[in-house]
Nucleic acid binder design. Structure first.
Length: 105
DNA sequence: GAGTCATTCGTTG
DNA sequence: CAACGAATGACTC
């Protein structure tokens, strides 16, 4: 069973176009949540894995964030790899071009 | 009902 | 700039 909150997150993340990324903070504020952690929780489940590009979501400090339940290791390694396919590159574990961040509005 | 979490901001050194 | 602590909101058991 999915909650309205999770659906909100999946909807917001699904709106992020290719070659662009978003942050937990932006998603959280976009759906009306004061905690970015809740967003990560919803993405962690990600029942719509291929439909919801959870790999297009990073931390607000331009860090890679987490992936597949891990915040470092092969998890984020695969995340950066996927982002690299989207023309989104990372440097030292941080987003290369902050302009890649997609902000609604 | 308590524990856990893929975060974020503020203070201190 | 770097490291630590406190706060927030929701999902899982």
């Amino acid at each position: 069973m999915l909650t309205d909150f999770q659906i909100r997150v999946y909807e917001a993340v699904s709106q992020v176009p290719k070659g662009r990324v978003s942050t937990y903070k932006i998603i959280a504020g976009y759906i009306g949540c004061g905690s970015s952690r809740a967003v990560g929780q919803a993405l962690r489940k990600n029942p719509f894995a291929p439909e919801v590009p959870c790999h297009r979501v990073i931390a607000s400090d331009l860090s890679i964030g987490g992936f597949k339940g891990g915040k470092e290791g092969a998890a984020v390694a695969g995340k950066q790899k996927l982002l690299a396919d989207e023309d989104v590159y990372f440097v030292d574990g941080r987003l290369k071009e902050k302009g890649r961040i997609y902000k609604p509005g």
